[in-house]
Design a protein around this nucleic acid. Structure first.
Length: 531
RNA sequence: GCGCCACUAGCUCAGUUGGCAGAGCAUCUGACUCUUAAUCAGGCGGUCCGGGGUUCGAAUCCCUGGUGGCGUACCA
């Protein structure tokens, strides 16, 4: 903890019993001694002074018989409802009871303006000494301050400068703030502090609250969409004895009672397909996924992925399905199927381009790689100044060339289709294209936003694919998938033709909120622990 | 991982060639009954990220450690 840079040190005893905070207070205590000696010459340190001011206010409130942390408040409306019903409520003289955080306070002798902010909005409140009484007025002006939670009772009116306001008859302190809120004009900017202290970020920056409200609405719309189409929402294990369904390194953990190693899931694919085998027909899950890999602007070690499986569909059914879903989300959340992302305007409305994997490579590299063998691909990758790992096979090489030379061109939505079999161990062979599978990945703004295929349901073929993966693993590819005998048994029980889909929820939120870092759209992104 | 950049008051930021550490907001005191980044007057507030070095003198130059940002690599 870099104490010097942090205003937001909790009150001693506030979280007693928490080891981290005990350490924290030890440091604070050490610091106080140091500052006391400084006080003699230079006065009191700002964090200490702010705390002392606030503690004095608390004490005075208690002396006046006010509980600074009361139990509840009966609000009968919100700021947004006040704005929406303004004229009717002014006319009928409706008494409104609002609760929120005090975000500004302008005291002018015997009258005072302030702003009250709740989750969705902000409204000005107005207090006069001769209307609420001297004691209550003084308490509000002197002992309540920006950051405090307050409740007010009053009526709506328009000020002389024509701003909708609440003429307050009674003000109630609902929760005293003991630490200063960030500067009111600029808010909290430091990206590290914003992520580490999301509570402060949310309190200080209303646009951040709006973004996470949008994320929540998006998830609700997605659930509605899948349910309309007859999908059943299910839950599958996070802790798994075998991990599978994707190529990635897992987090490992230990179950004490079973004395066994467990993995945090890197995908839920194999479990959802077991449910299709069992006859649940159409299922989906909004799943927290964990991958033990690097972090950057579009990767967090834990992230949210939606996976869905539909019996009797193939991957051709999923393309219009995804187009419709994304278009609807854009329209509902941004008001238009044309969304702005950075410098680009992206059209989610019209049918998306469909591009065969090898055609895409040819289009952007000028080379037809369909028949190219491993050696030729390695040479070509080298030519394109791609760092080639000698352990890479044909599939990895193709994938690397695709990532480096082709994907950066995918600004407008495109379905990249029919991937090489080598990099798709769970997808069904393409019905017409030997060596390729029935798979597609939609790209938008160069981000891979989903992954879908006609699911492989032939148990013998699935076994051969797993065996090929195990071969890669033996050669040192620690992302290769592992054999799952129980999954093979499930396929032997019998899986109908099925189409499967995975959607990266976080990336979709980034797209629809024009956010360019995953940290911006996760409430609590992974951060290095505070030292 | 690697490369480049940043770190100054609680917050947002200035700080010239190496020469006394600055502003706004917040906080405190006073004035003010329609303000709204309220205003006006006055006051308090600093481990210039930590450690080491060069120098008469370091926020500033050098070395080193920490944290973060951007780019790059693997991945969704």
């Amino acid at each position: 903890m870099r104490i010097r840079r942090s205003t937001f040190t909790p009150a001693p005893g506030a979280y007693s019993g928490c080891e981290r905070n005990e350490q924290h207070f030890k440091r604070l205590a050490g610091r106080k001694i140091k500052e006391k000696t400084m006080t003699e010459k230079r006065g009191i340190a700002p964090t200490e002074r702010l705390r002392q001011d606030k503690e004095l206010k608390l004490e005075r409130l208690r002396e006046a018989g006010i509980n600074p942390y009361p139990y509840r408040f009966d609000r009968n409306t919100t700021t947004v409802e006040c704005i929406a019903n303004e004229s009717a409520w002014i006319e009928e003289g409706k008494e409104v009871m609002l609760a929120g955080r005090l975000m500004s306070q302008r005291v002018m002798g015997k009258s005072c303006f302030a702003n009250l902010e709740d989750r969705d909005g902000n409204i000005q409140i107005f207090l006069r000494k001769d209307e609420i009484g001297e004691d209550e007025y003084k308490r509000f002006a002197k002992l309540m301050e920006v950051g405090d939670h307050v409740g007010v009772r009053g009526v709506l009116f328009r000020t002389r400068t024509d701003e909708l306001s609440v003429r307050v008859a009674e003000v109630t302190l609902l929760g005293k703030s003991m630490l200063a809120l960030p500067e009111k004009h600029h808010g909290l900017r430091d990206p590290e502090l914003r992520a580490r202290q999301r509570y402060t970020d949310l309190a200080a920056n209303s646009d951040v609250r709006q973004l996470f409200i949008t994320r929540s609405r998006m998830l609700r719309l997605i659930r509605e969409f899948f349910e309309e189409q007859g999908f059943l929402e299910v839950e599958t294990p996070v802790l798994q004895p075998l991990y599978g369904g994707a190529s990635a390194r897992p987090f490992t953990t230990q179950h004490n009672a079973l004395d066994t190693k467990l993995y945090m899931r890197i995908a839920n694919e194999l479990y959802l397909k077991r449910l299709i085998v069992g006859g649940l027909d159409r299922v989906f899950e909004v799943a927290k996924i964990f991958r033990n890999e690097g972090m950057d602007r579009s990767h967090n070690p834990e992230f949210t992925m939606l996976e869905a499986y539909a019996s009797y569909w193939d991957y051709n059914d999923l393309m219009p399905f995804i187009e419709e879903l994304y278009r609807r989300l854009a329209v509902e959340l941004t008001g238009s199927a044309q969304i702005v992302f950075g410098d680009h305007t992206i059209d989610l409305g019209s049918p998306w381009e469909r591009l065969d994997f090898y055609d895409a490579l040819e289009k952007y590299t000028g080379r037809d790689l369909r028949g190219a063998d491993e050696e030729a691909l390695a040479a070509f990758a080298d030519e394109l100044s791609i760092d080639v790992d000698p352990s890479w096979n044909r599939g990895k090489l193709l994938d690397a060339i695709m990532s480096k030379k082709v994907e950066p061109n995918f600004i407008q939505p495109v379905f990249l289709m029919d991937h090489p079999k080598e990099i798709s161990p769970l997808a069904k062979d393409h019905r017409d294209k030997p060596g390729q599978v029935e798979r597609f990945e939609p790209f938008i703004a160069t981000m891979e936003v989903a992954n879908a295929f006609s699911e492989l349901n032939d148990p013998a073929e699935q076994r051969r694919r797993f065996e090929a993966q195990m071969g890669l693993r033996a050669k040192g590819d620690d992302e290769a998938q592992v054999m799952d005998e129980d999954f093979i048994r499930a396929l032997e029980i019998g899986m109908p033709p099925t189409a499967g889909l995975g959607i990266g929820i976080d990336r979709l939120v980034m797209l629809l909120t024009n956010s360019h870092h995953i940290r911006e759209i996760l409430l609590f992104p992974m951060m290095r622990p505070e030292a």
